[in-house]
Design a protein around this nucleic acid. Structure first.
Lengths: 218, 218
DNA sequence: CAACAATATGAGCAACCCTCACATTTGCTA
DNA sequence: TAGCAAATGTGAGGGTTGCTCATATTGTTG
């Protein structure tokens, strides 16, 4: 599950990030090549120190061509960030699809968080992209929106598991849990093992309590 | 409570951040002037777009002098970040000093979080410094360490409020709550009011549950 | 005042992102 | 195939920025 692979779905990414929408096959391959090179460089030394000249050289194209596909450096980071959000979305959609009961939900949620954390650990690119997202206002907005979307998915599963419960409460719980998800992943990565794993487990417990005991909002 | 004022305690900041330790009065005033200018510029347009030339001009000194006190741009951010951490530390130390019972703790914790959030809202500099901290690995380490220190303070209060409880459990709870504190502040700022306030309240409830019902670690 | 140390200065260097005038390739029609 | 226009590729160079360093200024001491 690498960030430099397009999802099988033919969703044309965010075209706004591109200077020209790559219609021809050759162009699309080049975009992938650029993103792949950028991924490698970011994984090695971070997005700050990634140089556009390096991306061009590693991709075997000129600087000028690079700027024909991406309007600026931030656009490359943004595209990678959106793919990263797509990964969490897929995780959650797949993981929660078959949830019917509260026991299902606990099992599924636990497995889902573990899988997500595993991806975080295995993909150094994601860690750095995350840092870049935190530093940039526009990217933070993208992340918040992704969390909100994920919260909708979680709310659906919660409704199936707790049919009688107040829907507003479920929504509030789901939103908090999903907002916190990214924070926990960052914390776990920052502290390193074994403390990271302990944090993930503590987060899970917090989430369970939150599901079972939705807040009585005033 | 501005970031560009030295704490009354004569702690000489992190001398490692300075090129020369400012021994003379005039020098120390200049350092304060630089930090004050940097604060203003960061508050206005963010640390990314803050230019060293602007800091020098606003301080009424030359670029060269600026680099006599701070080895690089990051050092200014770092010094501001450490002062920001000192603020949270003071908040928590003062807020939890008189806690004796669990009821005390709930009251004190609630007031403390509200105060801290108020500072966050009122000081745009802090918000941007926080962003810069997230983007920089060294600064993230500083933040984690600050959270750990704060967790120690919280653990002490917890011990007084729950004398019989297992100390390891209390420590684990305190650490999680303090780690999450920064995350919640960021989220609340990012989402804006009124959702931010709701997040803060949800966080408080989570913290209370965590205090009362420490995890049974395996 | 002289002589030396400490501090201040800002022109300029190197590194970076990005542009743009021009070269090359591709696709299409006759 | 020849010819041409549109699409795509190129990289030297412009404009900024963080930071250095030789020089000038200020302070201190005998």
């Amino acid at each position: 599950m690498a960030l430099d692979q397009t999802a099988p779905s033919p969703a044309p990414e965010d075209e706004g990030a591109m200077r020209k929408s790559p219609t021809q096959k050759r162009s699309r391959e080049r975009v992938e090549l650029i993103l792949s090179s950028a991924s490698r460089l970011i994984a090695e030394r971070g997005s700050d120190t990634m140089r556009m000249s390096e991306v061009a050289e590693l991709s075997g194209i000129s600087i000028g061509s690079l700027y024909q596909y991406f309007p600026d450096k931030a656009a490359i980071i943004r595209t990678l960030a959106e793919r990263y959000n797509a990964i969490s979305r897929t995780c959650i959609t797949d993981g929660l699809a078959d949830v019917r009961t509260m026991a299902d939900l606990q099992r599924a949620f636990s497995a889902l968080i573990d899988e997500y954390y595993g991806i975080f650990l295995a993909e150094p690119v994601i860690r750095d992209i995350w840092s870049a997202m935190q530093a940039d206002k526009a990217l933070r907005e993208i992340e918040l929106e992704a969390s909100r979307q994920n919260a909708i998915l979680l709310t659906r599963a919660l409704k199936r598991a707790l049919p009688g419960e107040n829907v507003d409460k479920l929504q509030a719980s789901a939103l908090l849990v999903m907002y916190f998800c990214e924070c926990v992943m960052r914390l776990a990565i920052s502290t390193g093992e074994p403390e990271g794993r302990a944090l993930i487990e503590a987060y899970k417990r917090m989430a369970y309590r939150s599901f079972a005991d939705a807040p009585d909002t005033p």
